[in-house]
């Protein structure tokens, strides 16, 4: 019975994905894509990966969708190239080959499946964390997570670099060109405080139950964006020292803790014994702040000619 439901879910995702790839109106495609994201969130729950489900819905569907909607609104559909029928057939063949090869691999994966779960179980007590995913992200593979925060920072620098040099201290354009309506204002006033609370809870609970810095940061970013869309708060200028420090806080606090680990625990990104959880939570606070600010700024885009 549950397999039937799973199959329906899978078919829905596939149908929405085909709609995304089919072309036509940009808005419709983006909305279909956001639908794919939400359904994928459900699938992640079915795969017992609640942390991923939260990330997929908040980042993969929500904030990514917001960025894509802007693209659909801003860029009129330009047919940059016309591709012939033969090329379509070739691409279709390539797609079929990819599907067939992957399907064979998925069906032939070894049984019992190799897994690092036992290693994680053995090592997790040393970290004092209850959520194994947070343990992998912040302890065992801390280097990846550190670099991921750097990736966000570099992407932001890349987005800002699209503006002329003289705009480097100005503010991005607002997301919502029309004056705010009463409904949006009301929604923002009620939802932003609730959402902020949810975001902080997600990050705080992430040490022991599903959630964490990325999910919490994404929710906080969404709330900040909503406040800006409703006109409750202005779009900030990117030159402010506070804003820039908030962007840098996560990656460089993490890096600093990593270097401190050399002296206190004997290895880069090792945590001093007995203080693991305290230090990890402190790093997560910094990361959450940076992620929230960076995600929001990435959505807002490059600074425009307007002074804040």
């Amino acid at each position: 019975m549950s397999l039937l439901l799973d199959a329906i879910l899978a078919l829905l995702v596939l149908a929405a994905a085909v709609r995304v790839a089919a072309g036509g109106d940009g808005f419709a495609r983006v909305v279909a894509f956001m639908g794919v994201g939400l359904l994928l969130g459900l699938i992640w729950v079915r795969l017992a990966a609640v942390d991923v489900a939260l990330t997929e819905v908040a980042v993969g569907s929500g904030i990514t969708g917001l960025v894509l909607l802007q693209a659909a609104a801003d860029a009129p559909l330009t047919r940059e190239r016309e591709v012939g029928l033969l090329y379509h057939l070739c691409a279709g063949m390539v797609g079929l080959v990819v599907f067939a090869a992957l399907a064979v691999v998925v069906l032939l994966l070894p049984d019992p499946a190799p897994s690092l779960a036992p290693d994680v179980v053995r090592a997790l007590p040393a970290t004092d964390l209850g959520n194994p995913v947070t343990g992998v992200l912040l302890v065992f593979r801390a280097l990846d997570t550190l670099l991921e925060t750097m990736v966000l920072l570099v992407a932001l620098i890349g987005v800002w670099s699209l503006s002329p040099d003289r705009h480097w201290r100005r503010a991005p354009a607002p997301l919502w060109p029309a004056p705010p309506s009463g409904a949006l204002d009301f929604l923002a006033r009620v939802l932003v405080p609730i959402g902020a609370l949810v975001g902080i809870y997600m990050f705080w609970a992430g040490a022991d139950v599903p959630g964490g810095a990325f999910q919490g940061g994404a929710v906080l970013a969404a709330m900040a964006l909503m406040a800006m869309m409703a006109g409750l708060s202005p779009v900030p200028a990117i030159g402010g020292a506070g804003l820039r420090l908030a962007v840098l806080a996560g990656p460089f606090a993490f890096l600093g803790v990593g270097i401190a680990g050399w002296f206190l625990a004997g290895a880069f990104l090792d945590y001093p014994e007995g203080f693991e959880k305290t230090v990890i939570i402190a790093v997560e606070v910094a990361i959450t702040v940076s992620i929230a600010v960076t995600l929001a700024l990435l959505v807002l885009g490059p600074p425009m000619g307007r002074k804040a």
């Binding site: 993969g60 690092l116 194994p132 992998v136």
Partner: peptide, 17 residues
């Protein structure tokens, strides 16, 4: 579920964003 791939997917989603 194996937690390692889950953590990697979270990283991947943020990178894709």
């Amino acid at each position: 579920a194996d937690p390692v791939p889950q953590a990697l997917v979270i990283t991947g989603i943020v990178v894709a964003f």
